[in-house]
Amino acid sequence: MLGIVVAAHGGLAQGFAEAIELIIGVQEQMEFVNLQPGMSPEDLKNILMTAVKAVDTGDGSLIAVDLFGGTPCNVALTITAEVEAVCLTGVNLGILLEAIGIRDNGADPQEIAEKLVEVGKEGIQQLKIS
């Protein structure tokens, strides 16, 4: 199945890890990478590449990042040029839960990412009881 790595600023990725564990428990083939103060893009790339290789068991991987154009995104992009991985930006909890649910359906990383973009957007709604 598709490996998943979440990479984000500060403790955000760790936050997603805790939220996922609370809802559905610790997941396999899933790693969380935190961009800490003082970490250079090269440091981050080494850590991220190690995580990507750890979760990929032959079906490729998804690198889910918090912010389009941020350092985790840009570093993840350089990794997608080197291994079988797709970068998904603006990740939210709904996307990650869906990703865990559909990642062994046999589709390739790009198709799964496309579906996740849809699901991510659907999860963003304005609600009020009046």
Partner: peptide, 10 residues
């Protein structure tokens, strides 16, 4: 040397 990234664009 990070070129275009979060802080710059926003």
């Amino acid at each position: 040397d990070r070129l275009i990234h979060g802080q710059i664009t926003t």
